[in-house]
Design a protein around this nucleic acid. Structure first.
Length: 572
DNA sequence: GCCGTTTTCGGCCCGACTGTTTTCAGTCG
C-alpha cells in the first residue's frame, strides 16, 4: 500500500511537535515543519517521484537527510525516528500542544511535574486546581485550559474561500464606516486566495488603533473576544470563525500588508533577504539601523530588497522570490482576459436558467462566447439529454446564433465517462458538437491505475476536448479519486485534450498545485464555472484564483482566445 | 536539519498580547 504525501507531511509535523516538547534545537524542529509544508504542496506523490528516479533533496527545505528519511518512509511505511521518540515520551502529548494556551514548554512541564499525558488528564488536573500550583501557571490560565480541554477545541476548522467572503464582506463594510479608519483590507490566506481559510486577518489604517479595536470587538457577530490590545485584537465570531484585526498608521500600510498577507514562509524569506542588506523588515516598515526607510506601499517594501512587487497569490515561498529576483515572475491571467465560459448548464438538464437566460448573463459579462454543456443522458443523472433532445438543443442554438451577433453559443455537452472509459453518447452525436466535455461522475473508488486507465481511454476518443473537474474532489466533503496525475497530464498532452479548472466553490478542480504542474507540462487549461444558473457565471473568479495561484498566464488558458483561435486549439 | 553573490560553519523573522511576574517567558501569527 502506497503512502501518500499528506500522511508523510503529518508524520513530519507530529515528529516536529514531539521534538519541540523534547526541547530539541528549534531550528531542527522548524526544518521538519518546513519539509512537511513542502510535501503537502507537491502536485505529485513523493513515492511516484522516487520511482521515477527523482532527487527529493532538490526540493526546497529538503536536504540529504530528510530525502533519505522520506525514501525510508515510502519503502517501509514507517517513520522510525517518530517511533523512537514515541517510546521516550507519550505520543498523546502532541495532542495537548493543540490546546490553545499550551505550547511545547508548558506541555513538557505538565507532563514532568503532574504526569499529564492526555486531554482527560489535563481536564481532571485543571478541575482539581492543580495547574495553578505550577510555576508560570495561575488561576486564569487554568480556567482557559480547562475550558479548551473540556470542549476539545483547537485543531483549526478551515472554511471555503467563498464562505469566508460571505462573512468578511459585511465586516469590512462595518469597519470602513468607522470614523478615523481609512483603509480596510482582508489579508492573510484570503488575500492569497487559498481555497480554504482558517481565519480572517483584517488590516486597517487609522491614526490610533483604540477606537477601531473598540468598535471591532462590539461588532454584532462577535461571539467572544480572545485578546485585545492597542493595535490588534482577536475575536471568535458566532459562526466559529476567528478574526484578527490589526490597526496601523497610514505610513505603515504597505509593510503591514506584506506582513499580514504572508505567507509566513514568504515573510521569513523576505526578512532574510532584508538581513543580508542590513535591513530589518517588520509590520511597521523597512528599517536601516533604527531609521524607517520604507513601508507606505507593498511595492516600496519589495523594492528595498531589490524585488518587483509579487502578486499575493504567489506568496508561498514556492519559488516566487527567486523568480522575482531573476525577472521571470509570471504575468498572471486576469478576469479581463477571459473571453467566454466553457462549461455551463441550462434547465434542459439540471440547471435553472434557459439558454436565453444564460446567454444574456454572458453578454452582461462581456463574453464573446458561451458553451452550453448540459449533461448527456446516463443512468444516475436526471434530466440528462439523450441524442434526440440534444439534437433539438443544437438546432435551438443554431437558430440563436443565426439571429444574434452579441454572443456565440457553443454547442457542447458534458458527457459521462463510463466505468470502462467509454462515453455516454455515441460518436455520431458528438460529431455535431463544437466542444465535448468528459467527466467522471461515478466510480470514485477505483484504484489509481484503473482510474487513470479509464480517463486515458476516454481521452482516446477523438471527439473529447476537455476533461472537467479532473480529480472529482469536493472541498471538505469528498477526497479526490485516486489518479496518477503525471500520467493523466502526459496522456492529455499527447492527445491534444485539455484540462478544466472548475470554478465551483466546492470543487476548484484542478487545484493550484495541479495548475502549476499542468503549466510545467505545457498543457493549456479551460477556466470554467460549471454554472447551473446565470448568477453562477460569476464563479469564474474562483477558477481564476486557482489558476493564478498555479502561476497560470493568459497564454496558458484556452478561453483567453477569440473563437477562431480557440477552435484551432480544440482541433485534434 | 537546511543552506550559501559574505559562509561548507554558523547562522536561522519579528513583534503583540497574556498572564504571570515585579521584568519576562510562553504562545501565537
Amino acid at each position: 500500500m502506497m503512502i501518500h504525501n499528506p500522511e508523510i507531511a503529518s508524520l513530519f509535523n507530529r515528529y516536529a511537535i514531539l521534538l519541540d516538547i523534547d526541547r530539541a534545537n528549534s531550528f531542527r524542529v522548524r526544518a521538519y515543519r518546513n519539509a512537511a509544508r513542502t510535501i503537502e504542496n507537491l502536485p505529485r506523490d513523493v513515492g511516484e517521484m522516487l520511482a521515477a528516479g527523482e532527487d527529493l533533496s532538490e526540493l526546497p527545505g529538503i536536504g540529504k537527510d530528510l530525502a533519505h528519511k522520506i525514501a525510508a518512509i515510502v519503502e517501509t511505511g514507517h517513520f522510525a525516528e517518530l517511533d523512537d521518540i514515541e517510546h521516550r515520551i507519550p505520543a498523546a502529548l502532541a495532542d495537548l500542544a493543540d490546546v490553545p494556551g499550551l505550547g511545547p514548554k508548558r506541555v513538557k512541564q505538565l507532563y514532568e511535574s503532574l504526569k499529564i499525558k492526555s486531554l482527560a488528564d489535563l481536564a481532571q488536573a485543571a478541575r482539581a486546581g492543580k495547574l495553578r500550583t505550577l510555576g508560570g501557571f495561575g488561576p486564569k490560565l487554568e480556567q482557559t485550559i480547562l475550558k479548551a480541554a473540556e470542549s476539545r477545541v483547537g485543531g483549526e476548522q478551515r472554511i471555503r474561500l467563498a464562505a469566508a467572503e460571505q462573512i468578511a464582506e459585511p465586516l469590512v463594510a462595518y469597519l470602513k464606516a468607522l470614523r478615523g479608519v481609512s483603509k480596510v483590507i482582508v489579508a492573510g490566506s484570503y488575500r492569497r486566495r487559498r481555497e480554504t481559510v482558517g481565519d480572517l486577518d483584517i488590516l486597517a489604517t487609522a491614526p490610533t488603533g483604540a477606537k477601531a479595536i473598540d468598535a471591532f470587538v462590539r461588532y454584532d457577530e462577535v461571539g467572544s473576544v480572545l485578546s485585545r490590545g492597542t493595535t490588534r485584537a482577536t475575536v471568535k465570531l458566532k459562526s466559529g470563525l476567528q478574526v484578527d484585526l490589526r490597526v496601523v498608521k497610514e505610513e505603515s500600510y504597505g509593510a503591514a500588508l506584506v506582513y499580514f498577507t504572508g505567507s509566513k514562509a514568504h515573510n521569513i524569506a523576505l526578512r532574510l533577504k532584508g538581513i543580508k542588506r542590513r535591513l530589518k523588515i517588520n509590520e511597521y516598515g523597512v528599517f536601516r539601523k533604527e531609521r524607517w526607510i520604507a513601508g507606505r506601499s507593498e511595492k516600496e517594501v519589495y523594492a528595498e530588497i531589490g524585488l518587483p512587487c509579487i502578486e499575493p497569490e504567489l506568496r508561498e515561498n514556492n519559488g516566487e522570490i527567486e523568480a522575482a529576483q531573476s525577472g521571470t515572475l509570471p504575468r498572471l491571467v486576469t478576469l479581463e482576459k477571459i473571453r467566454g465560459d466553457l462549461h455551463t448548464h441550462t434547465d434542459a438538464s439540471d440547471g435553472s436558467g434557459s439558454i436565453e437566460d444564460m446567454a444574456r448573463a454572458a453578454v452582461a459579462r462581456g463574453y464573446e462566447y458561451l458553451a452550453i454543456s448540459d449533461h448527456a443522458k446516463h443512468v444516475g443523472i436526471t434530466h440528462g439529454l439523450d441524442a434526440r433532445r440534444l439534437a433539438r438543443q443544437i438546432a435551438q442554438i443554431d437558430r440563436r446564433n443565426a439571429g444574434h451577433r452579441d454572443l456565440l453559443l457553443l454547442k457542447s455537452a458534458e458527457v459521462d465517462i463510463l466505468p470502462d472509459g467509454k462515453l455516454s453518447l455515441d460518436n455520431a452525436v458528438l460529431a455535431d458538437l463544437d466542444l465535448v466535455i468528459a467527466a467522471v461522475h461515478t466510480g470514485f473508488t477505483l484504484n489509481s491505475e484503473t482510474q487513470t486507465d479509464r480517463l486515458i481511454r476516454a481521452m482516446d476518443n477523438p471527439y473529447v476536448n476537455i476533461i472537467a473537474h479532473p480529480t472529482g474532489r469536493l472541498i471538505g466533503e469528498r477526497e479526490a479519486y485516486a489518479v496518477d496525475m503525471a500520467r493523466l497530464m502526459q496522456a492529455a498532452k499527447e492527445r491534444g485534450v485539455h484540462l478544466e479548472v472548475n470554478g465551483q466553490p466546492s470543487r476548484l478542480d484542478l487545484s493550484d498545485t495541479h495548475c502549476r504542474m499542468a503549466k510545467a507540462m505545457g498543457l493549456k487549461l479551460a477556466l470554467a464555472t460549471d454554472a447551473h444558473n446565470p448568477e453562477s457565471l460569476g464563479y469564474m473568479r474562483y477558477a481564476l484564483d486557482q489558476a493564478r495561484r498555479g502561476w497560470i498566464e493568459a497564454k496558458d488558458v484556452l478561453n483567453t482566445r477569440r473563437w477562431p483561435q480557440l477552435k484551432k486549439l480544440l482541433r485534434r
